[in-house]
Simulated assay, not measured.
Amino acid sequence: MSVTHSALASAAAAPAAVDAYTLTAARAWATAAALLGLAGAILGGRALARSGRRPAGDGRKGALVALAAGLIAVVGGVVNLAVADGGPGTGNGVVGGAAAVVAGLTAGVLGGLTLARSAGSGASSR
């Protein structure tokens, strides 16, 4: 193999530069996971606020939804980060994946706090 062929082969194997505003599949996946985590965090916060006001322990369903959304967001973000080839700006959704992990963990913590508060008050879910 000559020098020209190896240079062409390495140039063909290198990923093409991605514009900052190009929506790649990995960026779309990471954005969807981050938005799901954000929605879970919002629901978890609302459920936590409602569980403190009402003695009946309302907010349990919201807490469960926040936990589920947080778990899905964390898994989606971690998978996206695991398969990313490069760092931020490469079009692999690294920033969105990290945001999904943070938002998903926040949703999980808020949902868990709500469930702990409703279980600690002795309220039943019936």
Rank of each mutant, 00 (worst) to 15 (best):
A7L: 05
A14V: 02
P15E: 11
P15L: 08
A17H: 07
D19L: 11
Y21C: 00
T22Q: 05
T22E: 14
L23Q: 13
L23A: 15
T24V: 11
T24L: 11
A26H: 12
W29M: 07
W29A: 15
T31I: 10
T31Y: 03
A33I: 08
A34L: 10
G37A: 12
I42W: 06
I42D: 04
L43M: 15
L43R: 04
A47L: 07
L48N: 09
L48A: 15
A49H: 12
R50I: 11
R53Q: 12
R54W: 02
P55N: 04
G57T: 04
G57Q: 05
G57K: 04
D58T: 08
G59N: 10
G59A: 05
K61Q: 13
A69W: 06
L71D: 04
I72E: 10
V74H: 05
V79T: 11
N80R: 13
A82C: 10
A84C: 11
D85H: 14
G91W: 11
N92Q: 14
N92L: 04
G93S: 09
V95K: 01
V95C: 01
G97P: 07
G97L: 08
G97N: 11
A99E: 06
A99R: 05
V101W: 00
V102Y: 06
A103P: 01
G104L: 10
G104Y: 10
L105N: 04
T106Q: 10
A107N: 00
G108N: 07
L110W: 02
L110H: 04
G111S: 09
G112T: 08
L113A: 13
R117Q: 13
R117V: 13
A119P: 00
